[in-house]
Design a protein around this nucleic acid. Structure first.
Lengths: 183, 183
DNA sequence: TCTTCCTATGCAACTCGTTGCATATACAAG
DNA sequence: CTTGTATATGCAACGAGTTGCATAGGAAGA
């Protein structure tokens, strides 16, 4: 399982509270790893117990206090160990593909609206990624200093962009196929 | 959850035993939905209990008897209901992306071998998909009769092919980035 | 004959992920 | 002054997925 490792990477990039982590998982990290706040809090507890991360109570004004987590030496070592372990390429789970093959035993035309919905969702994600790329990497306000961390973040983001573009092209293909199958 | 629906689709395409389903999940269906035989047997039990599928004991020669499952009317209705429900676009989980961003806090060069391994794996999958496409859809021995089911299966397979091609291009991009970051 | 592999089915324990709910502070809008 | 929204943390129950193990018949080869 890699949630704990995703949290370690995120905390190394910038220390933060469980709440802040949950928001990062809705944004940048969520591009390739999803997690809810309940999951994050639970894992943070365990990681703290294992000495992977340190906590610091931070009083705040105008909002509740927070617990700011940062990576301890043990956690850094654990991440390093995991980074050097080989991992298997991810297993895929595409509900939509199941539906498309299932449509052969139902009304294929009824699936068109659903596929169009997914198309819209992926178009939105692509726009969001491209805006982030412009803001953080390729735009005029993006930092110009060479930085391995930023380079790697950009490479991951390019992966997200490539994925969304591929999905949009494929969904167009699926839509054309569904229209062709209409009476 | 869609495992039960994936099983229904597979059984509609062709009835079979739990063992046969497990093998299909290693092959064609596994392109977009993975499941182990333990999981499949467990779900088949529940589906049988719910009246979604029928069982037939089939004695075999030279090998143990098997239970052949086929979709019952209730199961067909359940699938139809699910097909008409909207589903959310899948949530992604890319261990490799976590590793790439984590490499900023470790040795980026150490990741090159791992990325190359993944590249090889995806190249193998692509070759496998392309061979299947040639055999079942575009080759000279493929059936020529128009069939909605086959059309949709082909569309899903084209999605797998597009995915693997996208991954290969992105992994090339990542490799170039990692080489650029070397001392 | 012994081992290994393939077919075929299944249990039990455990971990992980999801869903629903609960609590508390603070600010802004009505 | 109540309602809604955002911050901030958390529990409990359930459902899904993974891992390890167990059983059993038959075929193929050393």
């Amino acid at each position: 399982m890699a949630l704990e490792h995703a949290i370690l990477v995120s905390l190394l990039e910038k220390p933060g509270s469980g709440y802040e982590l949950a928001r990062r998982f809705e944004r940048s990290i969520g591009y390739f790893w999803t997690a809810t706040h309940q999951q994050i809090y639970r894992v943070l507890k365990r990681m703290e117990g294992d000495g992977w991360i340190d906590v610091r109570e931070v009083p705040q004004q105008g909002r509740p206090d927070k617990k700011e987590y940062s990576v301890a030496a043990v956690g850094r070592a654990a991440l390093s160990g995991w980074l050097h372990e080989p991992i298997e390429p991810e297993s895929v789970r595409h509900d939509l593909a199941v539906k498309i093959r299932g449509a052969a035993f139902d009304d294929p035309a009824a699936l068109i609206r659903e596929v169009e919905r997914h198309h819209q969702e992926h178009a939105d994600r692509l726009a969001h990624y491209l805006a982030g790329e412009l803001r953080d990497f390729t735009g005029p306000d993006a930092p110009r200093t060479p930085d391995a961390g930023r380079e790697l973040q950009h490479a991951v983001l390019r992966g997200g962009i490539a994925y969304e573009r591929m999905m949009l092209a494929w969904l167009d293909d699926v839509l054309a196929t569904l229209h062709r199958l209409r009476p």
